[in-house]
Amino acid sequence: MQITNNDNTAVLIILAMVGVFILVSAFIIYSVRNQNRLLRQRQEFQQAQIAHQKELLRATIEMQEAERKRIGQDLHDDVGTTISGLRLLIEMFKPTGPEDESFKEFTHSSKSIIDKIVKDVRNISHNLSPTTLRYYGLASAIMEHCGIINQSGKLAITFENEAEQELSAFDINTATALYRVFEELLNNTIKHSGASRASISIKKEGDDILFNYSDNGKGLLVSPEAFKKGMGMQNIESRLLNINATYVILPDESKGFGIEITYPILAAKVAANG
């Protein structure tokens, strides 16, 4: 039996031509959609970044406002009240002579009140711009701050520094940013965590300086993502972003909260060179 082929070549060619045309059209449509999808994703990503930057800016502004309010309150409640008291004391006092017993008491009270005002003003000024940070560097400023908190009995803080030399090379802006971050972290621990102990350790690892902070408090009661949206954390993030440092919230394996901040030494050198 002879095998015959009755296929019409022209029909096959028509089918192939139409088929190839459809295939190529489908490929082009796919590539157009893919490119447009990529563009949309990039735009969404950029928008998310802008929104995040705006959020950080808002947090910074709110933090500044809160700081101003606190300074105003400190001035009003501490310095203002004390000066008013002093004025009242001076007004009420009617001395009979220099040997008058009440005159001696008046002098003593006035001196005590003036001493208190000086102390209050020093505290406010210290909070605004820590003198130790300016003259003795970051490590000393953190140590001093820890010392004040330790003395208050609110928290027992241990401080370990294995990068003394690198820290002393920090410019004032970097040192202030990192100091404020630790201040904020300690403040959070005291206010919200119910912790009795906290520890700060600083060490050099390769080209980075690692700052470790942890406490034995309640830890994160919300997800790390939600926690990062809090004003305090946003303030920390914006300060770290400014000095090119990064941070990771450590997993809540044991009780407490932990954060690791990585600061690249190269960034410190660039900042120092202007």
Binding site: T9, I13, A16, M17, V20
Partner: peptide, 18 residues
């Protein structure tokens, strides 16, 4: 260009048949 040359490729190949 892509649509024309890919759609016409088979025709170009077999054009001596018709």
């Amino acid at each position: 260009l892509l649509l024309y040359y890919s759609g016409g490729l088979i025709m170009f190949t077999f054009s001596n048949y018709f």
